[in-house]
Design a protein around this nucleic acid. Structure first.
Length: 112
DNA sequence: ACCGTGACGGCGA
DNA sequence: TTCGCCGCCACGG
């Protein structure tokens, strides 16, 4: 019998996942804004949480990008094939990147 | 209990 | 404008 190797996310992680789930489709948020939502002053800490997100992509962590308007990372990879998958998901939800600079348009920065 | 690492952010040169 | 450094927070070893 397989033992349930179920990891229990910390309270902090669950808050991040919850906040991330609140991001509407077609919109994106930033790690920093999300951090504020969970009462944290560090965007990096949020990244750590999403990095181990066991609920992905159910939890739309792919809608979280850098304040820099760049994509950030996906599944632990700052760049690579997984990040391309992230772009793919966003485009499917109506979020298109600028083909030149590969950054997100500022039109969707309405969600905190 | 301590240190290093990390899907970041802001400021300075 | 671009590149680099430091600072914050949370987590694993």
């Amino acid at each position: 019998m397989n033992q349930e190797t179920e990891v229990t996310p910390t309270a902090f992680q669950q808050k991040v996942y919850a906040a991330c789930s609140r991001i509407p489709e077609g919109k994106v948020s930033t790690y920093g804004s999300l951090a504020k939502s969970v009462g944290c002053g560090s965007a990096q800490a949020v990244g750590q949480a999403l990095r181990v997100n066991p609920f992905a992509p159910q939890v739309p962590c792919h809608r979280v990008v850098k304040s820099d308007r760049s994509l950030g990372g996906f599944f632990g990879q700052s760049s690579g094939p997984e990040v391309k998958r992230k772009i793919r998901l966003l485009e499917k939800e109506g979020v298109k990147l600028d083909p030149s600079s590969r950054v997100l348009p500022a039109h969707m920065w309405n969600f905190t």
